[in-house]
Design a binder for these strands. Structure first.
Lengths: 245, 245
DNA sequence: AGAAACATTCAACAGTCGTTGAAATCTAGT
DNA sequence: ACTAGATTTCAACGACTGTTGAATGTTTCT
């Protein structure tokens, strides 16, 4: 069957997505994008206005799709689980699986999109505003789900655990190939199956550890764990040798 | 006492560090940098050659200092621990503490440096090459230390665990402020004390979980944990609805 | 067919980009 | 004081930047 004709608008979005993912917002010119899309330079301004708005359009395009997939998966596992059946693993999985699945099997457009997300999430300039705008409403749903399966968990522990999850997840999106070198080929950045298989239990264990720590703080369980922690981990405020200012 | 005169070369490095951290390599022009440093444009080329080399010089300046601090801390805890006394927490702490301590108390130059590292680590363009060049020799020392305290742990589990650690750590460096919005002020991005206090046990628990999983795979301990994991976590290969190509 | 809306092309704008060569100034060694 | 070398300034280069207005082509609806 004849594939539906890709409009100039879509071609620009696709090219922008691919190039922004590679070299960031400032590393790509409008002319780079329109040349890669095979269209006239002026069409970028015509369809999207300013460069920033084109960038925003790229981000927006797939965000809604992802949020729906993830929310759906969360509700599914809640329904499946019934009363008290849903685990931390289920929630982390609902949060990460749709993303890693898309990156692995959604085609090059999705791959670029996630690489771009990885950059933005770790950028001081775009990080807070753009990620917040597109994803934080969804994240609040997941935070609530986690609160329910980790009752009594301190809010700060909960949010910082989420922070660690996001960091591990977005670095995975970047697929920089660094782990390939580091491991001498034992691990491959693009083997997202293997990552997901490990990410879920790894992060879930972290969540449980922190919340158990809080319970211990209140003198309830696993006291020895916490004490060990407090003894071992040196506080941050400690003087060190001089170095470049 | 009169502070030692900062040379034009140093002023350029400082300005470059600050600006690159904010807007990345392409988002900053040589003129931006030299203007911020209060020196002539041509001095950048004179002292550093091409723009890429200036960028590399910024990265290199503090890398050696950090590597030495971290290695020192690793050896300290090994010495202190004696035979069988060193824990996963100790190693994670030696890996993260010097960095977070510098970011928290090293002054604005260090803060910028780590924000820059956060960007680079998650960039497809610079990620693998630059991080590998400056840090992977050190990382191998830590991998070996982890191998020793987690005997029998599968290499892939070990490397992917390290990957998660790096992701969580570098997102912390970015200090994007996203967690501030998300948590409604309960957490603050620049409260690195609180992060470190949680990062170490969180990541250590993840390491232990994965290695226990491997032991279980060999039919030795915690079998039920693994089965639970395998049941709960859906494999990545699963069809989903259509979306933009 | 004709009109209205949409899409595309071309040429050009005022700036900014990284980099350089030549001249001027400063510093250290004798 | 003289010189050799390192450092800084100034002016300029060709190429590239985002954006626009006017003209041209195409589709859609009555």
């Amino acid at each position: 069957m004849p594939r539906p004709p890709r409009t100039a608008r879509d071609r620009i979005l696709d090219a922008a997505e691919r190039l922004f993912a590679r070299r960031g917002f400032y590393g790509v010119s409008i002319r780079d994008i329109t040349a890669a899309a095979g269209v006239d330079v002026a069409l970028a301004s015509y369809h999207f206005g300013r460069k920033q708005e084109l960038f925003a359009a790229v981000l927006e395009r797939r965000a809604a799709v992802l949020n729906e997939l993830r929310l759906q998966r969360l509700e599914d596992c809640r329904k499946r689980g019934g009363s008290r059946g849903v685990s931390v693993e289920d929630i982390i999985d609902a949060f990460t699986h749709p993303l890693l699945e898309r990156s692995a099997r959604g085609g090059p457009g999705w791959k670029s999109y996630f690489a771009l997300i990885a950059q933005i999430n770790n950028s001081a300039e775009f990080g807070a505003s753009m990620m917040t705008r597109h994803f934080d409403a969804l994240v609040q749903h997941f935070m609530q789900a986690l609160r329910e399966v980790l009752p009594g968990c301190d809010e700060r522990d909960l949010y910082w655990s989420y922070h660690f999850l996001t960091g591990a997840l977005t670095l995975t999106f970047a697929e920089t190939g660094r782990i390939d070198n580091l491991s001498g080929g034992v691990c491959r950045s693009n083997d997202l199956e293997s990552v997901h298989e490990r990410l879920v239990p790894f992060i879930a264990a972290g969540f449980r550890e922190l919340c158990a720590g809080v319970a211990a703080r209140a003198g309830k369980v696993r006291k020895h764990r916490l004490e060990k922690r407090v003894e071992r981990v040196t506080p941050l405020r400690r003087r060190v040798a001089a170095a470049p200012r």
